[in-house]
Computed example of a mutant assay.
Amino acid sequence: MTITPETITVPVADGTFLPAYLARPVGRAAPVAVVVAHELFAVNPDIRGVADGLAAAGYLVLAPEFYHRNTEAGRWFERTDAGREEGFALLHQLGREEALSDVDACLGRLGAQPGIQRTAVIGFSAGGHLAYLAACRLPVSRTAVLYGGWLPTADIPMSRPTPTLDLTPEIRGRIVYLVGEDDPLIDAGHRGQIRSALEKAGVEHELVTYPGVEHAFFWPGTPAFNQWARDDAWNRILSLLAE
C-alpha cells in the first residue's frame, strides 16, 4: 500500500508543541491508529521505518519526539557511545507526567481522525517502558512492548515515584510483551516480576521470550539483530492490531 509521510506538530496540555512523524496510508485507514514510542535514540530512521511499515499495512501512525522539551525538532542519535550518552541525558529529563501528556495528546489527535475507533501504542526499549506506562494510565486498546526496561525499578524518571510495574492493575486493554532471553537489561528476575504482575492483575496479555536473543534484536545492521525474532515480533504486532 502507498503511504504519505509528513512531519506535524501536536499541541500538548502543558503548552508545549510536540513534533511527530506521521505516516498515513493512501486511501482509507484501518480503524486502529498507532503511536510508535521511540527508543533511546529518538525518532531515527529505524523508528520512521516502523511507522512506514505500519502505514503500509493500512494503519494511521504517529511517531512523536518525546525529547522535544529539551532538544531541537528532528534531532536523533547514532547507535554509538556518544549517541547513547546523549540519549540517556535526555531520557533522564523526561518525567512521567510529561511523557503521559505527550502520548495523550497524540492519542487525541489520532482518535479525532475520521474512521478511527481505537488507538494502540507500540514501544521499543525506553519507548517500550513508555508504552507500558501509557497502557496503565491512558485509554489504549492494544499495546506492544518490545524489550521495555526498568519497569520494576525507579531507575528512570518515567518510573517514579513508584515503579511503573506497580500500575499494572490499571491496564484495561490487551498487551503483548516481547523480549529476548539473553537481554541483560531485562533478566529472568525482571521477566518473572512482569509476568507475575500481569497475571495477578488479570490483564489480557502475552509475554513472549526468544531463546538466545539479546536486547534491541529488532534492528537490522546492529550486533543484537535477530531476523527470526524480528519477523515473529512484527507478525505478532500486526496480529495484535488486527484483532
Score class of each variant (00 low, 15 high):
T71V: 11
T71E: 06
T71N: 06
T71R: 09
T71C: 06
E72L: 14
E72C: 11
A73S: 15
A73V: 15
A73D: 15
G74E: 13
G74M: 14
R75V: 15
W76D: 14
F77E: 11
F77T: 12
F77D: 09
F77Y: 11
F77A: 14
F77C: 11
E78Q: 15
E78A: 15
E78W: 13
R79C: 13
R79P: 01
R79H: 15
R79A: 15
T80V: 14
T80N: 09
D81V: 10
D81Q: 10
D81Y: 05
A82T: 08
A82G: 02
A82D: 09
A82N: 02
A82Q: 10
G83E: 04
G83W: 03
G83T: 12
G83H: 08
R84L: 13
R84Q: 12
E85D: 11
E86I: 13
E86N: 11
G87T: 14
G87L: 12
G87V: 15
F88N: 12
F88E: 14
A89K: 08
A89Q: 09
L90M: 11
L90N: 07
L91F: 08
L91M: 15
L91W: 07
H92K: 07
H92G: 02
H92M: 10
H92A: 04
H92P: 00
Q93G: 02
Q93P: 00
Q93H: 01
L94K: 02
L94C: 10
G95V: 00
G95D: 06
G95C: 01
G95Y: 02
R96T: 00
R96G: 01
R96E: 03
R96S: 00
E97L: 07
E97S: 09
E97P: 01
E98M: 07
E98S: 11
A99W: 02
A99H: 04
A99C: 06
A99D: 05
A99G: 10
L100T: 01
L100W: 03
L100H: 03
L100V: 05
S101H: 05
S101K: 05
S101N: 09
S101I: 02
D102R: 03
D102I: 03
D102E: 10
D102L: 05
D102F: 08
V103T: 04
V103A: 07
V103K: 03
V103C: 07
V103R: 01
D104Q: 08
D104G: 06
A105K: 04
A105R: 05
A105L: 06
C106E: 02
C106P: 00
L107T: 00
L107W: 04
L107A: 07
L107H: 03
G108A: 10
G108Q: 07
G108I: 02
G108P: 01
R109I: 07
R109P: 00
L110I: 02
L110Y: 04
L110P: 00
G111F: 04
G111M: 02
G111K: 03
G111A: 07
G111T: 05
G111L: 04
A112S: 13
A112M: 06
A112T: 06
Q113A: 12
Q113W: 06
Q113L: 12
Q113M: 13
Q113G: 05
